Computed example of a mutant assay.
Amino acid sequence: MGQESSVPRLNREQVRPVTSDDIGLKVLREATPEAAQSPDIVAIHGIGAHPDDSWCKNVGTKEIPRRVNWLEEEDMLPGVVPSARIMRYGYESKWFGEGAIQQRASRVAQRLLLALKRERKEYSFRPLIFIAHCFGGLVVLKALLDARQVPDEWPGIYTSTTGLIFFGTPFRGAGGMSQIEMLDAARREYEAEEVQPDVLKILEPGNEFLQDLVDQFGKTRTEANKTMVACFYELKSSNVGKIVGKEDRIVSLGKESAFHQN
């Protein structure tokens, strides 16, 4: 969803597999020892993406790649928040091709909450900032709403969240290329058992779960001490058709999909 228009057609050889070591909460940089109140920053990727590659750019060549991860590079995010603990959360998000898996935002959100509860046990009320890409932003909303509803089960997660940064999250659905077209494109290249359509349903404009999720979160914006929210949307279109192996089909997640605060 948030990839540039130069993304090539995907095939089985090009997709970087997600292993068990990639799943879950991974600490990329520890907080400085004296900074008990320094923030935890958690990055969450979108669908069809590797948990690490979403935050990387290849500064090498196709033959000899060298990935630069802006969550880890000293002169990038760590340079802006040097005392913060920086983590990224990974989940299986491949919805087409070999190893495709059924996935739902609510399931990923629950696993994210469990991982955060374990990792933040010593400092449950340390400030928390989420950075989310595409579908990952919907996972964050669901996790925060669940944590708000049962605060004793998820101590500090909702009340300590001070910042939300969304990259191309389709709060009003991803227009331009419909779910049916995406599925049709994938099914042209892969076997029926290699395509899992459930994860795409939430991205359809007008999806009931999506609308309810955004509406519920919108109601929390009237509370005191509101979390700061920043939404970034695309100015360059993406060739979504090529991502699933079809002919060119240009899509852009513009500002109309961004979350508007009250």
Rank of each mutant, 00 (worst) to 15 (best):
M1V: 12
G2K: 00
Q3H: 14
L10E: 12
V15R: 05
R16M: 06
R16F: 07
P17L: 08
P17Y: 08
D22L: 04
V27C: 09
E30T: 13
A36Y: 04
I41W: 00
H45F: 03
G46M: 02
I47V: 13
H50W: 01
P51N: 00
D52C: 10
C56G: 07
T61K: 10
K62D: 14
E63A: 12
E63T: 14
I64S: 08
L71R: 06
E72N: 05
E73Q: 14
E74L: 06
D75Q: 14
V81D: 03
P82N: 08
S83I: 01
S83N: 11
Y89I: 01
Y91Q: 00
E98R: 15
A105M: 05
S106T: 01
Q110I: 10
R111T: 01
L114D: 09
L116K: 06
L116W: 00
E122L: 11
S124Q: 12
F125K: 12
P127M: 10
L128G: 04
I129H: 09
I129F: 06
F130T: 00
C134S: 15
F135V: 08
G137W: 01
V139M: 00
K142I: 03
K142C: 10
L144V: 09
P151M: 11
W154D: 03
S160L: 04
I165S: 07
I165H: 03
P170G: 01
R172A: 08
G173C: 07
G176C: 12
S178Y: 10
Q179T: 15
Q179D: 13
Q179N: 13
I180E: 15
M182A: 10
A185G: 03
A186N: 03
A192H: 13
D198G: 08
I202Y: 05
L203E: 06
L203V: 08
N207C: 04
N207P: 01
N207I: 02
E208F: 09
F209A: 12
L210R: 03
L210P: 05
L213P: 02
D215P: 05
D215L: 11
F217T: 02
G218R: 14
A224N: 14
A224T: 09
Y233F: 13
Y233K: 03
E234G: 06
G241C: 04
E247T: 09
D248E: 05
D248C: 04
R249H: 15
H260S: 10
Q261A: 11
